[in-house]
Amino acid sequence: METGIVMTVANLIRGILMLILGNEFIVSVIMKLIGIGAMIGVISFAAILFTYTERKVCAFIQVRLGPNRVGPRGLLQPIADMLKLMSKEDIIPYGVDRVVWALAPMVLFVPSALAYAFFPFDDGAIFADVNVGIFLLIAISSQSVLTFLMAGVASNSKYGMIGAMRAVATSLSYEAPMVFSLLGIVMITGSLRMSDIVAAQQNTVWFIVLQPIAFLIYLTTCFAETNRTPFDFVECESEIVAGAFTEYSGMRWALFFLAEYANLLSISVLTTTFFLGGWSGPILPGFVWFWLKTIFMLMIFLWIRWTFPRVRIDQMMSFGWKVLLPLALVNVLFTGVGIYINRFM
């Protein structure tokens, strides 16, 4: 297997730096910094692009035109939005818990961005290929719920408070089925390393074939994880204004949205990696396959987001605990039995 495009480019940059600087260690440090910069670039670019994509797809589903005034086909709309948000007055409501309130949107971005360190973008193009990759990824992304709590409690408003409570309830009831749905994949792969998970699908079939139930469970929990309709209880604008972000405006509010779009991309990438074979695919280079699958998953997420109405919070909770969790556990059991039988065949 030849190395992918990303690694070829990385090796080229490494070679040029080596020629100029001539010291192995310095070059590897600079390469790590370039990697971090590239990931931040991917997140920012995705956030800008997704605001446009989301509005266009939403408009298409609702038989509207969507943004079409700023630039050709409304392509400059994200830039106009950004300028608008940056030029807004920074309003700090009366009675907020200043430090916690100001920290919440900044801290929220950290787990969303850290998760990108574990994504296998291409053959060998993974920033931190640690031996407990998938577990560490889940652990880090589970931290984001606390920032919703921070935002909601510090806002000193009832809508913020309700939003924060709902964030906790959602994450408690959906984290467990999500982890158990991924356990089947880990059992088949026999490793927690992200690159091993992709490699295991390269040799056999995609895990969506072996683990269809886990795929559906994971897809469902993803919506709760990223707070998108049908499970967007943290903000649901028609019930509690905007939940935890009610009191935020301008760039602080934009940071919440940056994190939301970073999470949206990250669930698309993760579904691709866990169930659709990651970057592996015939003929085309791995990098192209990776983004094709990711965009496909992204479109499915957008499609569901704009097609389904919001369910009630108690329905969501009982669905999580009484349907998804037992289903995920049964899936783990059957996967175990399947592996056991397979061993003696």
């Binding site: 640690v130 031996n131 407990v132 577990f135 560490l136 889940i138 652990a139 880090i140 589970s142 931290q143 719920v145 606390l146 709590l149 906790v168 994450s171 408690l172 984290e175």
Partner: peptide, 18 residues
Amino acid sequence: ASFMGAVQFLVYGGAVAV
């Protein structure tokens, strides 16, 4: 001990703190 670290994040940083 990255496994222990991840457990610490998930159990203490995630569940207990919340």
